[in-house]
Nucleic acid binder design. Structure first.
Length: 485
RNA sequence: GGUCUCGUGGCCGAGUGGCUAGGCAGCGGUCUGCAAAACCGUGUACAGCGGUUCGAAUCCGCUCGAGACCUCCA
């Protein structure tokens, strides 16, 4: 098993600190707005990692935080808390905003069949841990207080550590390139970053601290909560590529000072989703909420796309590649997924031919594992699954005979890879399928009678009106089957 | 301006020195009362120019183009 480690910019053999136990921390959402397509990518990427390790028999403690405090809205607002600002605009409690969007996020993630992490800590629930960590950093002399705020001393850190080890930056470049920001004259150096921020009177979200009322700085929560639940050093830290600098770089610096060792062994970063080649982001105004996509209400969408279509679409690209959004690409994904799931249904109905010789499912299974072992290459695994689809369809058409061993292997393959690891699932609209199927058998029977009498007008009327309900009839040698479009 | 990444057929996307994934779309055929689905067949793809090599989409250099980060962001 190899994983691409952002630290070394290369694939490395993965060895967990403790055998059979893996600690993984992933940066979760800031809950001040609708969950959008961009949130789906890391959630699905690390869900894949979580599912695969679990499948292989490891016990994974997966921590994904909820950020509900501490991020700055922009450089002009003098450290106003993002959530506090939104709350003021809407005249409601900040924690109400947090609750509302957390629930929405969970709903969307459930729809995408993203498993809940083992622990989902809130930043606001770990203020004490963050203050403690800041104190440790100050005691060691790597942070200084100015007027109720505390800053991490990047220059001092750079004397004996490499600030930039993750992002490939040099401290000199950082100093010369960092923009001079208004209201940040408190910092000794422009590269320094706040680890505790004084709350202006306007702030609603604030906590008492040794330095007065305020809130934790940008990057503290992940360091504090990662350390609390996974230890001073843990296996995997994941997140979006856009968090690599300064967020993760700063996490490394803070934790290294506070705990005396580098916090993370493998850094994994998923790439961005783009729209027309441009990064999707809240600030760019082209973010598409997941609810928008699921109901098709966004102007850029030709139609609605189901959660599983989105999941499959994301898994069809490697997590380290950018993924460009388009209706055409999503429709291709939709059809591909349908084909895959239809093959699963066909597979469950296949009868084994005892006399048949092995058709060779082993190479497909091996290819799937090889793909996943190579830095979680879900697109390669999916490609191999389509080899199995081909085999299944050929068998369903009577062009190929599968023996019991073949069938058992194929079913295992689909159970393991399609459902357990890739986390795909058939989508039904929640209707009572048993009842519907009973009704459908009746209708199909009536149509069959009409067809037997060559009354094709009647049979076509039945088929056409069912099509309007998104029910597709498929006439085959073994009779007629139906499925929801 | 600095740092980094990337440019693969109509679209999406794997692939990192020779055996040239996969999905979607298209075209031809089989099947069908007609369809749909499925099956079979079908594509002079690797931004451009140089170089290394017996051999390059794959390595090196340059050019062009795109994107990300350097500021909250998944």
């Amino acid at each position: 098993m190899v994983i691409y480690n952002s630290l070394s910019r290369s694939k490395e053999k993965f060895v967990s600190l403790q055998p059979e136990h893996i600690g993984m921390y992933v940066c979760g959402p800031t809950v001040y707005g609708d969950a959008h397509l961009g949130h789906a990518r890391p959630a699905i990427t690390f869900d894949l990692v979580y599912r695969y390790f679990t499948h292989l028999g490891s016990k994974v403690r997966y921590v994904r935080n909820i950020t509900d405090v501490g991020h700055l809205e922009n450089d002009a607002d003098e450290g106003e808390d993002k959530i506090a600002q939104k709350a003021r605009l809407q005249q409601i409690e900040p924690m109400e905003v947090v609750q509302f969007y957390t629930v929405l996020y969970h709903k969307n993630m459930d729809q995408l069949n993203v498993l809940r992490p083992s622990i989902e800590p809130h930043a606001s629930g770990h203020i004490i841990e963050q203050i403690e960590m800041i104190q440790r950093i100050m005691e060691k002399g790597y942070a200084y207080e100015v007027d109720g705020s505390v800053y991490f001393d990047v220059q001092k850190y750079s004397q004996n550590h490499h600030y930039g080890i993750l992002s490939g930056r040099k401290i000199e470049d950082l100093l010369s390139n960092t923009r001079q920001l208004a209201g940040q004259s408190d910092k000794r150096s422009s590269a320094d970053f706040a680890i505790w921020k004084k709350a202006e009177p306007i702030h609603i979200m604030r906590w008492p601290s040794p330095w007065g009322n305020g809130f934790p700085g940008w990057h503290m929560e992940c360091s504090a909560m990662g350390c609390k639940y996974l230890g001073d050093q843990f296996d995997i830290h994941g997140g979006g590529l856009d968090l690599l600098f300064p967020h993760h770089e700063s996490e490394i610096a803070q934790s290294t000072i506070a705990n005396g060792k580098a916090p993370v062994r493998y850094w994994m970063h998923n790439n961005m989703i783009t729209i027309d080649g441009q990064k999707m982001g809240k600030s760019l105004g082209n973010a598409m909420s997941l609810d928008d996509i699921f109901v098709g209400s966004h102007p850029l969408l030709e139609k609605a796309y189901s959660p599983m279509t989105i999941r499959f679409f994301i898994l069809q690209a490697h997590y380290r590649s950018t993924l460009d959004f388009s209706n055409e690409a999503l429709q291709a994904a939709e059809k591909g997924l349908k084909k895959l799931l239809a093959a699963d249904t066909a597979l469950r109905n296949l009868k084994a031919q005892t006399t048949a010789k092995d058709q060779g499912v082993d190479p497909i299974v091996e290819a799937c594992y090889a793909a996943m072992n190579d830095d979680f290459s879900s697109p390669m695994a999916i490609a191999s699954l389509f080899d199995a689809v081909k085999m299944i369809n050929a068998a369903a058409d009577g062009l190929l005979a599968l023996n019991e061993n073949d069938l058992a292997q194929l079913i295992q393959l689909f159970d393991d890879f399609v459902f357990d690891i890739l986390g795909l699932k058939p989508e039904t609209s929640g209707t009572d399928l048993e009842l519907v199927d009973g009704l459908m058998q009746t209708i199909i029977g009536l149509r069959q009678e009409a067809r037997a009498k060559k009354d094709f007008d009647t049979s076509d009327v039945i088929r056409d009106s069912l099509a309007k309900l998104n029910i597709v009839l498929k006439d085959g040698k073994e009779g007629t089957k139906w499925e929801l479009k």
